[in-house]
């Protein structure tokens, strides 16, 4: 009987290995971020740089509908001041209305507005981008997995920010063979989630965005910064969650300890 169980376990384990190979996208590059681990927090300067990359590069095609300008000043975020938020919101044009005459009108953005989308609707976005609408980026780092595997994801998270980073830095000159397979207007990127051919051309070039703090701005640096920023847009309450979690778990652990000793005392004379 034991032998049979062992055989069964061995069988299950042996094809677990095979299953990892079956996934077609290349696992993301396992870079680390400041916000990982139970005490990890966002690096405010990095989020501000990431915001600049989003604003100057990504936002030309990608919407970020779920995030409001005011969020940029929220606790646990990029740490812009309210004045800065008002100023940067005003650099966007927001469609509002109807006014008293029933007309829609454009006005500068307010802190309470959500980020305006670059295209009026998904059809327009697809038409302007070779038939593939650029996805909304608000939740992108939670909607993608960097790697697979039950235990792998338990120890190293699901790797969404790493996926974004790997995608941005993963454009490769394809081999002659792959070049022949590449559909018209697509680009080879082994990290792309659905097949290796992506409609988005390489979005970043060295030195493209100049950071106010003079931080390095190679493709690799900008990709890290914007991935961190998108990790925050997807999970803006992460710092609050970890801090509260720490207090809750301390409380529960002490409570469990007390319960255990009371239980022991009560049960001492039970038998």
């Amino acid at each position: 009987m034991k032998k049979f169980t062992m055989l069964l376990i061995a069988g299950l384990v042996s094809f677990t290995g095979a299953s990892f190979a079956a996934e077609n996208a290349t696992p993301a590059k396992p870079i680390s971020f400041s916000f990982e681990g139970p005490f990890g927090t966002f690096d405010k300067a990095q989020l501000q740089r990431g915001y600049k990359v989003y604003k100057e590069v990504c936002s030309n095609c990608h919407s970020m509908r779920l995030v409001a300008f005011r969020n940029l000043a929220d606790h646990g975020g990029p740490g812009f001041t309210e004045e800065q938020v008002k100023a940067l919101a005003a650099t966007f044009t927001v469609k509002d209305g109807p006014d008293a005459e029933g007309n829609m009108f454009d006005r500068p953005g307010l802190a309470s507005d959500r980020f305006p989308s670059p295209f009026p609707n998904e059809q327009a976005a697809a038409a302007a981008n070779g038939g593939a609408a650029p996805p909304d980026l608000s939740l992108i780092t939670k909607a993608r997995e960097g790697w697979h595997g039950t235990f792998n994801q338990l120890w190293s998270n699901i790797g969404g920010p790493q996926y974004v980073y790997s995608l941005l830095t993963g454009y490769e000159e394809p081999s002659e063979e792959i070049k022949k397979e590449t559909p018209e207007g697509k680009h080879y990127n082994p990290y792309f989630v659905s097949g290796h051919f992506i409609s988005m051309p390489p979005p970043l070039a060295d030195g493209q965005v100049t950071f106010d703090d003079g931080a390095p701005n190679k493709v690799d640096d900008m990709a890290r910064d914007v991935s961190a920023f998108l990790a925050w847009t997807a999970e803006p309450k992460m710092e609050e969650r970890k801090q509260l979690g720490f207090m809750v778990l301390i409380f529960l652990s002490v409570f469990a300890g007390l319960m255990y000793f009371v239980k022991k005392k009560i049960w001492r004379d039970a038998h």
């Binding site: 939670k142 994801q153 979690g245 809750v248 529960l252 652990s253 469990a256 239980k263 049960w267």
Partner: peptide, 29 residues
């Protein structure tokens, strides 16, 4: 008391997921 102790221990495991791996058991898609 015995159930109460077990419940609190269970809540600790539950809390680990809620606070430190809230999307682990879900599907990214």
């Amino acid at each position: 008391m015995k159930d109460g102790f077990a419940i609190v221990v269970f809540l600790i495991v539950y809390g680990l997921f809620v606070f430190y791996g809230p999307n682990y058991m879900g599907d990214a898609v």
